[in-house]
Design a protein around this nucleic acid. Structure first.
Length: 169
DNA sequence: GCCAACGTTGGC
DNA sequence: GCCAACGTTGGC
């Protein structure tokens, strides 16, 4: 299936006890807004770079097992995270306001649940993922870019195909 | 539950 | 603008 040349790929972390891939699928229109992110690097990605149509890997963090459950698609470009303006919200930030928003979010919709849940220890063995941000020591960014070859390898593995440890081109 | 790695805060 | 103290993330 041909895809736009400028399609980009991302990985979003969520604690499944809080919001799992199942929760995303079960949400109205299998869509949710990715609110509550309070980290500037992650904010910049959502505000500036994440575009409708981009691919998303949905990662379960602080879970047993941790790993990638499936994919989603960005269905709305970055826009202000209004939960920051609500004093009763747990992610309330008094420094952010409607005229001067600080925090941003995107909307995502569930796409394909993986046949194979891809657990973290397994991902660490894959050649094609050696450079992946997720696997770097000390990496804890909850919104991170994914390279096209990484995306391709992960989708293959998720659909049950062998990852291709040896083949390069 | 531990703790390493990281980001943020605030005194100076 | 430095950097120590603190809070958080997230694998194990």
């Amino acid at each position: 299936m041909p895809e736009p040349k400028d399609r980009r790929y991302w990985l979003l972390k969520s604690e499944p006890d809080c919001f799992s891939y199942d929760d995303l699928v079960a949400a109205p229109r299998s869509t949710t807004n990715w609110s509550g992110v309070r980290n500037y690097q992650a904010r910049n990605f959502m505000r500036d770079d994440m575009k409708k149509g981009d691919g998303v890997l949905f990662y379960h963090s602080s879970a047993e097992p941790a790993g990638i459950a499936g994919t989603a698609e960005i269905v709305r470009d970055g826009y202000p995270d209004f939960t920051a303006w609500d004093p009763s919200n747990e992610h309330y930030d008094p420094k952010s306001s409607e005229p001067n928003p600080i925090w941003y979010m995107v909307d995502i919709r569930a796409a394909e649940r993986f046949e194979q849940f891809l657990d973290l220890p397994g991902l660490r063995h894959i050649r094609a993922l050696e450079q992946m941000e997720l696997l770097r020591k000390g990496s804890r960014l909850s919104v991170q870019p994914v390279r096209a070859p990484e995306w391709d390898a992960i989708l293959k593995m998720g659909s049950g195909q062998k990852p291709g440890r040896t083949r390069t081109r």
